[in-house]
Design a protein around this nucleic acid. Structure first.
Length: 682
DNA sequence: GTTATCTCATGTGA
DNA sequence: CTCACATGAGATAA
């Protein structure tokens, strides 16, 4: 952002100073619960509600001893010690023994790796061909992009992969595949993209991978393959083979440590990694590990001293059954030895040490684990739960940048309140399913309203953006375990309201968030438009959500061609029966703290469900992409219509965008605007 | 080129 | 909630 932080430029969530000074003592942050005579179910917990284990109520303002500072994953610094980005071909070490030979020997270029990007001939054994092989499918990825990636491409590929995976999951859930069932949507989606050339960083390399940043998270091993971070779809050790050259040694490129063997991963800077092989199974005895394949590569890399990428796999806090993978940066192998494993057979062990100066990644996860377990406190923790139990998951309030003691007073209210006079749509009956609504059941009227598609996967991830999503409501009989009530279950992600450096308060998560995960709804009071202008008139109501703004379109849904469908697929433009304005100025939830960004990681989606015989519109926020812990959550506030002469619109127009994105609308000229619009869609 | 082998995955059902 | 286990992908090795 090009300087000129003018004094009266205020970003949406920065509270007016005079206002903040007026803030009441912290205790007033305790929600006051209005009598809930109307509106949807509301968790009514007495103030001073339960605190999570390990937290003491009303933490003192001064930081006690033993605090840890919060690592900031928002910074995108590529670490400086990274090996230059280039092709690497296994080659005898040059005489000085350290690292690989310098950049640019043209000799290397000619045979730059195993990179003939010819898609493999499709195996025709498939009995379960879901995908019509489109020979003319254009992945939109140039040959050089396939060789070397960049940030935008990596993000784009991950989004396309997950969109496809979610769609295949949805099809599988509904059992609508005529010939054969997709058992593994992740593998299928990965396979489709790999064979269509929708991938990058195929050129194997030592060190950093362009477009992949330290702290990036992944939820499937295929994602690592697609972006070229780790090319083995299961194997723990990725290496460059010395095939065809008896003189050459293999070189280890990266490892995945995710609990398959008993690695020691307690210290974030050191990892004791086990070699591969030798594990017994039902038809194979355990045996000694051999110095071959990955083990040999690690051994050679120990002597070569090259950097090795480390990916750590952990259990996902939100879904214990699945794993999340964190790219933890570059390590060097310090020593290796052999020891007897549990089976009594020999195993190789490798001690990897993290190269200093890299952004924190896994260390952040370890810190969060300790906060959750109550083993250590956060720097700047003001309140362990700003909702005082109004949400089932606590929301921390933290300031580690200045001495603001909290946001201006408001009442925490977890959902949206419609005034009695507000009649939005006609009465609309729910479904009559006896049990949980089943994907593929076309008799369910809620599923019918969604065009026959179940909007969520079995584990509650949004499949597609749609003009409107219809959930089952409180009076549908499919009560308990119906999966079509995702936005009504309250917060599930452990969120934190934190003080940003220049944007007032913001929102971030302690848990890793998968793309498509429901985060929260926009709570507050539904007001009519004239009231909104009035509210905005005094210039201080920044806590308003409008559906009637201009939102930059973006594509999040799957590509129909990749699942054998013709046509454009479901539209992602909203279709809202009547515009909605929600004020969270006096009543609101965590959503009121979410800041704007021109390249956001969260989007909103209109949702409708029936309650007391009437259908009400809600605004639900979902993760646009995978979001690592401690990364600020942002969405696009949109631009007011130019013909909207309301003072509220003017107020937003005056504000300076502080999102800092390279694609910031406020920072780009008209000419590149069009370009950027194109670039953000695919 | 083809094919077999290897592997710190996954989802499911006991 | 572990556990076994069937199925599986890409890359390497043969």
């Amino acid at each position: 952002m090009e300087g000129g932080l003018g004094g009266n430029n205020v970003s949406p969530n920065v509270s007016d100073k005079s206002k903040v000074l007026d803030v009441k003592p912290l205790r007033t942050l305790v929600p006051m619960f209005p009598d809930s005579s109307e509106g949807p179910p509301f968790v009514c917990v007495p103030p001073h509600g339960p605190f999570p284990p390990g937290f003491s109520p009303f933490f003192p303002f001064s930081a006690p001893q033993g605090f840890q500072s919060t690592p900031d994953l928002n910074q995108n610094n590529f670490n400086s010690t990274a090996v230059p980005l280039r092709a690497y071909r296994a080659e005898p070490l040059d005489s000085n023994g350290q690292n690989v030979s310098p950049v640019g020997s043209s000799r290397k270029q000619k045979s730059a790796g195993p990179s003939s990007a010819k898609p493999k001939a499709k195996r025709s054994k498939d009995s379960d061909v879901v995908v019509v092989p489109l020979s003319n499918y254009n992945p939109g990825i140039s040959l050089s992009d396939r060789e070397d990636g960049n940030r935008e491409l990596v993000e784009n590929l991950l989004m396309r992969f997950d969109a496809l995976r979610r769609k295949l999951s949805q099809m599988e859930d509904a059992k609508e595949i005529h010939s054969g069932i997709i058992k593994r949507a992740d593998l299928k989606a990965g396979n489709i993209m790999m064979t269509k050339g929708v991938r990058t960083n195929m050129k194997k390399r030592v060190g950093a991978v362009p477009g992949v940043e330290i702290g990036d998270i992944f939820f499937f091993r295929m994602e690592l393959c697609l972006v070229g971070l780790h090319s083995q779809s299961m194997g723990g050790i990725d290496y460059l083979s010395a095939r065809g050259d008896a003189e050459a040694d293999p070189v280890a490129l990266g490892i995945v440590s995710s609990g398959g063997y008993d690695d020691d991963a307690e210290d974030p800077d050191v990892l004791i990694y086990s070699g591969q092989g030798g594990a017994g199974n039902k038809d194979k005895e355990a045996s000694d590990q051999k110095l071959e394949r990955g083990n040999l590569a690690l051994e050679r890399s120990l002597h070569r001293g090259n950097e090795v990428r480390v990916i750590r796999g952990l259990k996902d806090a939100l879904n214990q059954a699945s794993k999340v993978y964190v790219y933890d940066g570059l390590f060097k192998i310090q020593e290796s030895w052999m020891e007897k494993g549990k089976s009594g057979c020999n195993m190789f062990k490798y001690k990897l040490v993290r190269i200093p100066g890299q952004a924190g990644a896994f260390s952040t996860w370890k810190a969060i684990q300790k906060w959750k377990a109550g083993l250590s406190s956060k720097v700047g923790l003001i309140l362990p739960d700003l909702t005082s139990g109004a949400e089932s998951t606590p929301v921390s309030l933290v300031n580690e940048v200045d001495d603001e003691k909290g946001p201006a007073y408001f009442t925490y209210f977890p959902t949206v309140k419609y005034p009695k006079s507000f009649k939005l749509v006609q009465p609309s009956p729910g479904c009559d399913c006896r049990d949980a609504c089943q994907p593929g059941n076309f008799n369910c009227s809620c599923i019918q309203k969604n065009g026959g598609d179940f909007p969520y996967t079995a584990n509650g991830i949004l499949v597609c953006r749609k003009p409107m999503i219809y959930e089952c409501g409180p009076s549908c009989p499919c009560f308990r375990n119906c999966k079509n009530k995702v936005s009504q279950l309250g917060l599930r992600v452990h969120l934190e309201v934190f003080r940003t450096r220049d944007r007032g308060w913001g929102l971030r998560s302690w848990d890793p968030i998968r793309a498509g995960t429901f985060i929260c709804e926009y709570a507050g009071e539904v007001i009519d438009k004239s009231k909104a202008r009035l509210d905005g008139g005094d210039g201080d109501n920044e806590y308003v959500f409008h559906t009637n703004r201009i939102y930059e379109s973006f594509k999040w849904n799957y590509e129909p061609a990749l699942v054998g469908q013709e046509g454009p697929g479901p539209t992602e433009d909203f279709d809202i029966p009547a515009h909605l304005t929600i004020s969270a100025k006096t009543n609101g939830n965590v959503a009121r703290f979410m800041n704007h960004s021109c390249s956001p990681n969260v989007f909103w989606q209109p949702i409708m469900y029936e309650s007391n015989g009437e259908a009400f519109l809600r605004i639900a926020f979902f993760a646009k992409r995978h979001v690592p812990p401690m990364t600020e959550l942002t969405y696009d506030y949109g631009i007011p219509h130019s013909d909207d002469t309301g003072s509220n619109a003017a107020a937003y127009g005056r504000k300076k965008c502080l999102c800092g994105s390279p694609k910031c609308r406020a920072c780009r000229r008209n000419a590149d605007y069009a370009y950027a619009m194109v670039a953000t869609t695919y």
